[in-house]
Design a protein around this nucleic acid. Structure first.
Lengths: 247, 247
DNA sequence: CCCGATCCTTGACCCAGATCAATCCGGACC
DNA sequence: GGTCCGGATTGATCTGGGTCAAGGATCGGG
């Protein structure tokens, strides 16, 4: 899949896997053509840094396949992940010159890029893009605020359970399966990345993952495979009730 | 000032103190008139809850004067503040039916409100409003991410210093004084609210405030007055260097 | 002026999670 | 098969901040 995309960098927007969820989701055929004209694909390898905090951003774009992280780092090395970018998520901030965060690929990735200037001028003229971007930004803000509760008030075990629920739900949404009575997915993050996400150390992450496994909340297959026999149980461990409302 | 506004609820937009910073900032005279037609003022007392999480939102609006907090609460009572709303900040989310957070006034407040439906239809027709809202939402997202680093990776002392720098800077911006070599402002939050903001307990907040005072980083005048003799020193304590970049 | 309410401070103790330090695994490569 | 090597696990110990508890300051109202 990735291979295919990497080699065929002339993918038509109509066939794009993220066509209905990315910034372009609301565009009609004409608008899509305008985007088509200025877009270009770029691929990155796992571990590569797409953008350094403080750098000039010369492009914005959408994640097509793969996963990236947004991180902030202090001088002494403490780092906090502030965003997890999955397929269809938007990278970059129109109207700002320099990047505020590091963007790092955690898997091999393909991005659909637009040079910043042309995209900005296009945006002022096509309200469908601006509107969709507002919608996506509001969603991200909600996610960030949910995350603030996790960082500020949850225990280590609840943090891990919260992360696993997010990943499980997102995976289910992507493949349209639903989490009814169980879910199974690949962990796209190392223990260290999970720690940076949750404001923990990697040792604590490891211990709590082991504990959830010991208690039968999750089953591990290999190092990265996770199976959740009872999704509601996991949500309970995350401090949420089964509706996704706070518990 | 508050009294004046509360009594004179027929304030003209042209004379509005937040005219150049709120959602309406980019509007021209015609657009402003459209907003003027559907707006109404509402005032709240300190401690009052404007919106309960889960409620239907019947309006959106801007904070004109006063301060409110956005909080999330878990069933067992753990509370995390996820937003601090100051004059000119926007409340509510167009395109969503129910509120996701509690909104609570921490001081007496005046809000400039619009019924949600009319505002939404107006927004689709006036790109200046939509554009400004996107800009403000992106700023809020940046603030939320900054805050995530504070919550996830900073020590209690650094957290307090970070909060004080934010409040000091915001106050300086509001009165256009700059923080050059010192600042002085009123704390608009109780120790408990500060704790909810920073993911701490109120006892720890109290202890760390006392410690910063003991070390001469801040001077307290009464319970709420704070003077910062050397703002760069405070930034250093917050784990940032004097440029506001991460240290 | 006193009373009560609300907020704040300070102390003593405890524990969840950090830190330091060995291993342990699993896959890539010779 | 062996040998790296980058994760991951697990153990022992330490500590920052939480918890529990006892006052203290400030302020509005009678």
């Amino acid at each position: 899949m990735l291979k295919t995309l990497s080699h065929d960098l002339s993918l038509q927007c109509g066939d794009c896997p993220i066509r209905h969820r990315a910034v372009c989701a609301r565009c009609d055929t004409d608008e899509l053509q305008l985007l088509e004209d200025i877009k270009y694909y770029r691929s990155y390898e796992a571990g590569q840094t797409l953008v350094w905090s403080g750098d000039r951003m010369e492009f914005v774009g959408s994640v097509v396949t793969g996963i990236a992280t947004l991180t902030q780092t202090m001088e002494d090395g403490r780092t906090q992940m502030v965003g997890l970018l999955l397929p269809s998520d938007f990278v970059g901030r129109p109207g700002r010159e320099t990047a505020a965060y590091n963007v790092v690929a955690t898997t091999d990735m393909v991005m659909c890029c637009f040079r910043k200037k042309p995209f900005e001028t296009l945006m002022t003229r096509t309200p469908h893009i601006a509107h969709r971007l507002l919608e996506m930004t509001l969603d991200e803000l909600d996610a960030a605020r949910e995350w603030m509760l996790v960082l500020g008030r949850k225990t280590a075990r609840e943090k891990i359970a919260s992360l696993l629920s997010i990943l499980g739900r997102r995976d289910a949404a992507l493949r349209l399966t639903g989490t009814g009575d169980g879910a199974s997915f690949e962990l796209p993050l190392t223990r260290e990345a999970m720690a940076d996400y949750l404001g923990l150390t990697l040792e604590t992450v490891s211990r709590q993952v082991s504990a959830l496994k010991r208690d039968g909340v999750i089953v591990l297959s290999g190092k990265r495979g996770v199976t959740v026999p009872d999704f509601n149980r996991l949500l309970g461990e995350a401090g949420e009730d089964s509706d996704g409302r706070l518990a």
